[in-house]
Design a protein around this nucleic acid. Sequence first.
DNA 1: TGCAGCATGTAATTTGTTACATGATTAA
DNA 2: TTAATCATGTAACAAATTACATGCTGCA
Lengths: 197, 197
Amino acid sequence: MDIKTLCLGLLCKGEASGYDLKKQFESTFKHFYPAGYGSIYPSLADLAAKGLVNCREMAQEKKPDRKVYSITDAGRQAFKEALQEADPEHKLRSEYLVAMYFADFLEPQRLEQMLSGWHETLGNGVTRLDSIEKGFGNDAPAGTRFVLGFGKAIAHAMAQYIEENRDMLTGTEGSRPGERSRETGSTASANNIETRL
Amino acid sequence: MDIKTLCLGLLCKGEASGYDLKKQFESTFKHFYPAGYGSIYPSLADLAAKGLVNCREMAQEKKPDRKVYSITDAGRQAFKEALQEADPEHKLRSEYLVAMYFADFLEPQRLEQMLSGWHETLGNGVTRLDSIEKGFGNDAPAGTRFVLGFGKAIAHAMAQYIEENRDMLTGTEGSRPGERSRETGSTASANNIETRL
DNA sequence: TGCAGCATGTAATTTGTTACATGATTAA
DNA sequence: TTAATCATGTAACAAATTACATGCTGCA
């Protein structure tokens, strides 16, 4: 599955311009299938060339022209087939986890910073998804509710894992849940990795 | 960050061949940074060309020759810098979620199948990570423990979310927000997470 | 006899990202 | 006046996947 197919799927739900699709990618899809204009516009051109979508140009007053794409029967068919086929892939690629794996190559304060930054980012993600959900009111389709809820649940789980396990990496002395280390000094933190790097 | 950098990082922890590195990617890294031979071998060649690693060929009896790569000072330096820099990216791309978003385009039994398959896959993932963890005994470095634990925690959270919310998509009676099916002893619905982290 | 493991790589292709290129309107 | 929103695209580049290509050993 690629972004082209996803564009096709979105057009099954209603006609839209490339710009419109981008907004959908930014809101509902961002946390599990991001895409930019650089992928979307060529996709639409390609779909149109294959007869899977139709395009009609609309002039607008005081706004640039827009090209509105609508699905064709062949397109709807093609999407259904694409959706059916193949065992779905679920791929994660995380530089945060790479950094954590190599935590002993980072300076302690940089590590702390990363963990905090990650945690904060996750919190913002939950907030973001929350407001998207509210934006739908009560009319959000089941699929939308499912994926938004998923995003929130997982972001929350990640944040919680970080909270509960960060001291595994930061090497706080006798750190127990609830006891916070004072930083700033960073002297005593016995970090046992080769000093001359 | 790319696979080349990750190879460099792994070589910081000890010398290895491309084949060895692949095994590490298969075990510890698979759930957050997968890579195949097609990425690893060219990476090593490139790192060697740049003087970031050294290579020595070792003849073996009854086995193919192997090329063992070891990090150089420049390489260690380069890795540390790569690790420091940039706000880390954490990217998910899930065809499962795409399928769930478009659930109404799937035939009910195919949907059920996908949900079950996904759930099962997640369970296998946890089992896999568990056995990797056990393979380390007690000597697993903190970074390794952190990333393996992370993988398990998140896979578990996803499985739980699916359990608790699958009826949102499958249209089982009682899937309305007010009327959710209660599962024995199960925690609060992952759908209603506190925004504050 | 056949398959899994050991061990290396290349080349073509696919895919997506980034930077570039343009330009009007509207709200702060 | 500055920035954001609307709106479209292309071209160069980066990165990773897939298929191809080889061949021996040991086990069941």
